[in-house]
Measured scan of single mutants.
Amino acid sequence: TFELKGKVGKVVKIAEDHYLVESEGDKWIAYSDEKLSLGDRVMVVDVDGLKLKVKRIP
């Protein structure tokens, strides 16, 4: 299986209740415990079905 946990991506869209993150050339629906901005670099900390939980990284 394709393992996304630990992968790095970038926030490419902000929606009302989720983010769109591009990682490894694909776009994924993501959510975070912190507020993210367009262009933020993020790391995948968990995968919930087809949704990614991400956190901001420097």
Rank of each mutant, 00 (worst) to 15 (best):
L38K: 06
E3S: 01
I29C: 12
K35F: 07
S32E: 00
I57Y: 08
I57P: 04
Y31S: 06
H18W: 10
K10S: 08
V45G: 03
D33G: 11
V45H: 05
E34T: 06
G9S: 02
G9C: 15
M43N: 04
G49H: 10
I29W: 13
G25H: 04
L4R: 02
D40K: 02
V8P: 11
D48C: 14
V45R: 02
V8S: 04
D17T: 12
S37R: 09
W28L: 06
E22Q: 05
R41S: 14
H18I: 13
L36R: 00
K53E: 06
E3M: 01
V54M: 03
I14S: 09
L4A: 13
K35N: 07
K35H: 08
P58E: 09
W28T: 02
M43W: 07
L4Y: 04
K10C: 11
E22A: 06
P58S: 11
G39S: 09
V45L: 11
K5Q: 15
V54W: 04
H18K: 09
D46Q: 03
S32P: 01
G49I: 08
D40E: 11
V47R: 03
V42P: 00
G9N: 01
S32L: 02
Y31E: 12
D48F: 14
E24I: 04
K35E: 06
V47L: 13
D48I: 14
G25Y: 04
I29M: 12
D33M: 13
H18M: 12
V54C: 05
D26V: 12
D17A: 12
G39F: 14
V42W: 01
E3I: 01
L38Q: 08
A30D: 00
V54D: 00
S32K: 12
T1I: 15
A30T: 14
L52N: 02
V12N: 05
L4I: 13
D40W: 13
I29T: 08
E16L: 11
L4H: 05
L38D: 05
A15H: 10
D33R: 13
V44G: 02
P58C: 14
E3C: 11
E16Y: 11
E24P: 03
D26T: 13
K10A: 09
V11S: 00
L52K: 01
E22T: 06
V47G: 03
S32D: 03
K13C: 12
K27V: 07
L36F: 05
K53C: 08
K51L: 14
H18T: 12
V47C: 09
V45E: 14
L36N: 01
V47W: 06
G25N: 05
Y19W: 07
V54L: 07
V54E: 00
E16G: 11
K27M: 09
D26M: 14
S32W: 01
L20N: 05
Y31W: 13
V54S: 01
D33T: 12
S23Y: 02
W28V: 03
L4F: 03
S37I: 10
W28H: 10
E24C: 10
V44K: 01
D17E: 09
G25F: 04
E22L: 11
Y31N: 12
E34V: 07
D17L: 12
V8E: 14
I29S: 10
D40H: 09
M43A: 05
V42I: 14
L38N: 09
V21D: 00
G39V: 03
L38M: 10
G6S: 01
G49D: 05
W28N: 02
G39E: 10
V47T: 04
Y31H: 07
L38I: 09
K5R: 03
E16P: 11
L52D: 01
V42M: 01
K10Q: 08
H18R: 12
A15E: 07
M43Q: 05
I29N: 08
S37M: 11
P58T: 10
L36Q: 02
L50M: 12
V47Y: 05
K13Y: 12
V45K: 03
K7S: 13
K13D: 11
K51V: 14
V11E: 00
V42G: 00
R41F: 10
P58N: 08
T1R: 15
M43L: 14
P58H: 11
I29P: 04
A15W: 12
H18V: 12
G6M: 01
P58F: 14
V47A: 04
K35Q: 08
T1A: 15
E16I: 13
Y19Q: 02
G49Q: 09
S32A: 11
A30W: 01
T1D: 15
D26S: 13
E22W: 12
A30S: 14
G9D: 00
V11D: 00
I57C: 14
V12D: 05
V8H: 04
K5N: 15
I14P: 02
P58M: 11
E24R: 01
A30F: 01
L38W: 12
E16D: 09
A30I: 02
V12G: 04
K53S: 08
S32R: 07
D26W: 15
K51H: 09
Y31L: 11
V42E: 00
V8F: 04
K53Y: 13
E22C: 09
L36I: 06
V12P: 00
L50R: 10
E3A: 01
V12F: 10
D17V: 10
L20R: 07
E16S: 12
D33A: 13
G39W: 14
T1H: 15
K10R: 12
F2H: 15
L20G: 06
D46R: 02
L52W: 02
S37C: 09
K35T: 09
K27C: 12
I14M: 12
S32F: 02
V45Q: 05
I57K: 03
K51C: 13
L36Y: 06
Y19P: 00
K13P: 00
L20P: 00
S23I: 15
L36M: 07
S32G: 09
I29E: 09
V45F: 06
F2V: 15
E3D: 03
R41L: 11
W28R: 03
A30V: 14
V11H: 00
K10E: 11
G9Q: 02
G49Y: 11
W28P: 00
L50H: 08
G49M: 11
D17W: 11
G6A: 01
L52V: 05
D26Q: 14
R41I: 10
L38G: 04
K35A: 08
R56H: 05
T1P: 15
V42C: 10
Y19C: 10
K7G: 03
K51A: 14
W28C: 02
L4W: 05
G6C: 05
S23P: 01
K27T: 11
E3N: 02
G25A: 05
S37V: 11
K53W: 14
G25V: 04
E16M: 11
E34A: 07
L52E: 01
K13F: 10
S23H: 07
K27A: 07
E22H: 10
E24M: 05
A30Q: 00
I29A: 12
G6K: 00
D48E: 09
I14L: 09
L38V: 07
L36E: 00
G25R: 03
D26A: 14
V42Q: 00
V21K: 01
I14H: 06
S23F: 14
K13E: 08
L38P: 09
L4T: 14
A30G: 05
V21P: 00
W28D: 01
D46I: 03
L38A: 10
S23N: 04
A15T: 10
Y31P: 00
M43E: 15
I14F: 11
E34L: 05
M43K: 03
L20C: 09
K55E: 14
K27L: 11
A15N: 08
V54T: 02
P58Y: 13
R56V: 04
K5F: 15
E16K: 11
K35C: 11
V45T: 10
E24Q: 04
E34K: 06
D17P: 12
V11C: 11
K55C: 15
E16W: 12
V21M: 14
R56M: 07
L38E: 10
V11Y: 00
D48S: 05
V21Q: 01
L36S: 00
L50N: 07
L4M: 14
L52I: 05
S37Y: 13
S23T: 13
H18G: 12
E3H: 02
V45A: 04
G25C: 06
R56L: 10
E24D: 06
K27R: 08
F2S: 15
G25D: 05
D26I: 13
